[in-house]
Design a protein around this nucleic acid. Structure first.
Lengths: 170, 170
DNA sequence: CTTGGAATGTCAACAACACTGACATATGCT
DNA sequence: AGCATATGTCAGTGTTGTTGACATTCCAAG
């Protein structure tokens, strides 16, 4: 690996795109792109008392209305204390509604209110606009590759969470 | 847009991959993948008194040895106070060396020490291992698409910073 | 040579967001 | 009745980011 060639790039296959240099470029692309990815919603949120964590909560509640706190916890990968701080402010501010479960009364099912949906729209419109431009500039084949690589990069649990969400969409 | 079809997907072109549903999947893929992307270095760093910010600083100093503080500031996109806190600990701990510029003595040129290079190796080995697996699983064409989309997603300034780094590599 | 501005460093205060640990409450299940 | 689960809450801590203010050093222009 000291020669800058990945240890996987041995046998005569066409694996030259696995040189350390190529990998490093992928890493840096990921870093810079993620900054762009979050930039627009962050700008909107900075004017309010909310941050990226609120955005994520609102996004996934909108995505899966009625989801439980525990489910959201697993998707977001944070502690319940961390999520609770965010949910509390969202509920206080009337953006999220928490309903006690019918089958299991310990569970809280989360829904966006009208105001919550409005914020979600505003944030995801901004984020989608950038994604749309990137997708349009890159073309369908590049987009397919993009998704393939990202999926391969996820942790296993996150990949299945992602697949579940993906399949439930439309 | 209320019909779930992107406003860009009007004229008869093949732009169905720009539906809001497709864009949302891209957004979620980005979110979950970035978690995987940072997971391994984060795990290593959590045992030390360092975090993701230290990783980023060490990465880019290694990438462009002798870079100035101001240059690093622009690449990382944080305030000098924030970067300075990180750099100070790295210098105190003997991972980074700060040399006063010869041409312009106001500038500080940053270099990794032997220990700094060791940490950088450890962190980037972990990150590259995941990237390598993802690239290998996805294949060269997917990787090309991945890079194309990420580049299109960057802010303009970040895109040029990325290109400069990319071109300087090998 | 003086002055203005640029590059850097430092101090203080603060906010967002994550963490751990401990504990309380209500509920479900055996 | 007793244990496990789901949720909420309090207290403390750490990392990373922010502003604002100010000092130092040095280059460059007048």
């Amino acid at each position: 690996m000291a020669d800058g060639r990945s240890s996987s790039a041995q046998s005569g296959e066409n694996l030259l795109f696995l040189t350390d240099e190529q990998l490093r470029q992928g890493i840096e692309a990921m870093f810079f792109a993620y900054r762009g990815f979050t930039a627009d919603p962050d700008r909107i949120l900075s004017d309010m008392a909310y941050g990226r964590a609120h955005h994520r909560a609102v996004h996934f509640i909108n995505r899966a209305p009625g989801t439980t706190v525990n489910n959201l916890l697993n998707i977001l990968g944070v502690t319940k204390q961390s999520l609770n701080r965010v949910l509390r402010t969202l509920i206080e501010d009337g953006l999220v509604e928490s309903r006690i479960g019918k089958a299991d009364k310990r569970e809280r099912h989360l829904f966006l209110t009208e105001a919550g949906r409005a914020l979600e729209q505003k944030l995801s419109d901004a984020q989608r606009a950038r994604m749309r431009m990137a997708f349009r500039d890159a073309g369908p084949e590049a987009v397919a590759g993009f998704r393939t690589v990202l999926e391969a990069m996820m942790d296993r649990e996150m990949r299945s969470a992602y697949s579940r969400l993906k399949d439930s969409g439309t």
